[in-house]
């Protein structure tokens, strides 16, 4: 992790804008049928960035990011890097409590520190009964992040949108835009 942020910063700088695509204010479908619509333009990184199905940012991934988990089926990990670890697989009968625990472990494996995962509470997501939980962590470089994850298990698949940003600025600054994305979410599956 000590290296992660620096490497990422360098990567962001080096990458220039070549592979980062703007997402206009239109409906976008991510992964297995998670549709969202932004209230402003987001910068989209290639699929697989940070191991998620999509990673969007306002001011750069090291400062704020929305991670999308779009239809994770039973037996697969939330993030690609955890594929080899059986205890990190999503199970379609998981409760919000267990999904929040899994999220906490993924943060720890990303070498985040001082991890706090808040209590999940019921929340409607994409028209389905789902959950919401807050979280926070510090990077080894000493930045404190706040985060918020909202999701639901629909037809056995996990759909989740998580927004993280620095506590000092980026979380409060971009939370309304992230919230707009979360509210716009639709799951396009056969009901």
């Amino acid at each position: 992790m000590r290296v992660w942020l620096l490497v990422l910063s360098v990567a962001v700088i080096l990458a220039g804008c070549g592979r980062i695509q703007p997402v206009e204010r239109e409906q976008v479908v991510i992964g297995q049928g998670l549709s969202v619509q932004g209230s402003r333009v987001w910068n989209q990184f290639p699929t697989g960035t940070l191991g998620a199905d999509a990673a969007w940012t306002q001011d750069g991934l090291p400062l704020d990011h929305v991670l999308f988990i779009a239809g994770r089926p039973d037996g697969e990990p939330l993030f690609e890097r955890s594929r080899s670890r059986r205890s990190l697989q999503f199970r379609s009968n998981m409760t919000a409590t267990e999904i929040a625990e899994l999220w906490g472990t993924e943060l720890a494996l990303g070498e985040r520190q001082q991890i706090e995962v808040g209590a999940p509470e019921p929340k409607v997501f994409a028209g389905h009964s789902g959950f919401h939980f807050g979280y926070s962590y510090a990077t080894e470089a000493g930045l404190v992040f706040d985060g918020s994850a909202t999701g639901a298990v629909v037809a056995g698949r996990l759909y989740l949108i998580a927004f993280s940003g620095t506590r000092a600025h980026h979380y409060p600054a971009h939370w309304p835009a992230a919230q707009h994305l979360i509210r716009s979410a639709q799951v396009l599956v056969d009901r």
């Binding site: 000590r2 290296v3 942020l5 620096l6 910063s9 360098v10 700088i13 090291p62 080894e140 470089a141 000493g142 930045l143």
Partner: peptide, 18 residues
């Protein structure tokens, strides 16, 4: 030296830890 330290105020700490 390439200015990453501007984005990363605690780079010295990361370096020392390394």
């Amino acid at each position: 030296g390439q200015g990453v330290s501007l984005r990363e105020p605690n780079a010295a700490a990361a370096l020392l830890a390394e």
